[in-house]
């Protein structure tokens, strides 16, 4: 790790000011991603602004009937929060499917959104990587790319966003509240993370110095018919090869409202509104689900080692939709993901 200075900010204003007042500053939440990358010499900030004393760790109802998740609330406190478990079990289960109990006790909600890709070449400073070093090339294209993207890739980068939590947040249409040197603004979740295009060094649309203050959930939580399905190389403590978040609103056997987002397949949580549209008004049958699955993967492109992900994703979508329609996963049933 390179030398750096550190201050612990007591207020949001102080944190933003402290960031702006230093060259190459970075915010640090739980540290579980940033310190890992600093130890690997992938990240080398000169100054850290510690956020773990900020008054942003609460989870509160919003006036619109939704729920505000504080930026520095931990992933564990969020997943086990009674309101989240009852009203947004999809989110609770997605969080609990990720990392380990220790890491979830440290990881903050904002940090989870901001975590960087697990692309092995991004971590290996001896190899070219456009995300780590713009213009150096992409070692994953034509290399070993089992964990890489099949949708929305570019010639510069085929990395995936590794978060489970964010896949649920995409399906739930969360809104990210931020404060920066020029004031505060809100960012729709679908506009938060970006595709690599020709600037893979930028994972998201947050501007330098902007601090995430909360993540807001709208009232609709799909607590009756939902599913988070995570497929990985071992049953626990592994990143997703493919994951699917589904929220359905049913009228009898007819789908009134549908949300569908995928993890492990793209540079951002991959929500497909066209596929959701195909589901709406249709009977909740396997034929309907297959049509949606084919639509999501229509433009998918394998990179060699990850070709299997295309068929895997289709089957995962059908299974997750089937589970959601049957109400198989329950709000009270927090361990569904250990036995998919």
């Amino acid at each position: 790790m390179n030398p750096f200075t550190l201050t612990r900010a007591a207020s949001v204003d102080a944190a933003v000011r402290d960031f702006s007042g230093h060259e190459a500053a970075a915010y640090i939440g739980g540290g579980t991603n940033l310190l890992d990358l600093m130890k690997e010499n992938v990240a080398h900030p000169q100054h850290l602004v510690g956020l773990n004393k900020l008054p942003l760790s609460s989870i509160e109802s919003t006036t619109g009937g939704g729920l505000r998740l504080g930026a520095t609330a931990t992933n564990a406190d969020t997943a086990w929060h009674a309101e989240v478990q009852q009203r947004y079990p999809l989110l609770s289960q997605a969080i609990l499917a990720g990392a380990s109990p220790q890491l979830r006790n440290m990881a903050t909600n904002a940090g989870n959104l901001m975590q960087r890709t697990r692309c092995y070449y991004f971590y290996d400073t001896a190899t070219p990587c456009n995300k780590r070093e713009p213009g150096s090339g992409c070692a994953a294209i034509g290399g070993y790319n089992r964990i890489h993207a099949i949708l929305g890739t570019s010639d510069s980068c085929i990395a995936t966003h590794p978060s489970d939590m964010c896949v649920a947040l995409a399906a739930l249409e969360a809104v990210v509240q931020v404060q920066g040197p020029d004031g505060s603004r809100q960012i729709k979740f679908e506009d938060f993370h970006r595709l690599p295009e020709d600037a893979p060094e930028r994972d998201n649309t947050l501007q330098a110095g902007e601090l995430i203050t909360s993540i807001d959930l709208p009232a609709q939580g799909f607590a009756e018919n939902f599913a988070y399905l995570k497929l990985r190389d071992r049953q626990s403590y592994a990143f997703a090869l493919v994951s699917v978040a589904v929220g359905l609103e049913l009228d009898g056997n007819t789908i009134k409202e549908a949300r569908l987002a995928l993890g492990g397949v793209a540079h951002k949580p991959w929500r497909d509104k066209a596929a959701e549209h195909l589901l709406k008004g249709q009977p909740a049958t396997e034929a309907t689900f297959r049509k949606a699955a084919e639509a999501v993967l229509k433009e998918a492109k394998g990179q060699g080692t990850n070709d299997f992900k295309i068929e895997l994703a289709k089957r995962a979508i059908v299974r997750a939709l089937t589970q959601a329609a049957a109400g198989e996963q329950k709000a009270s049933d927090v361990f569904t993901n250990s036995n998919p």
């Binding site: 612990r8 540290g31 579980t32 564990a76 220790q102 890491l103």
Partner: peptide
């Protein structure tokens, strides 16, 4: 790996991924 697990305010964490000053 979890070998470095300690309890902070009663909660288990990985002590390798946090800074002492924090």
């Amino acid at each position: 790996c979890g070998a470095c697990t300690v309890l902070v305010d009663g909660k288990r964490i990985n002590s390798c991924l946090t800074l002492a000053v924090l």
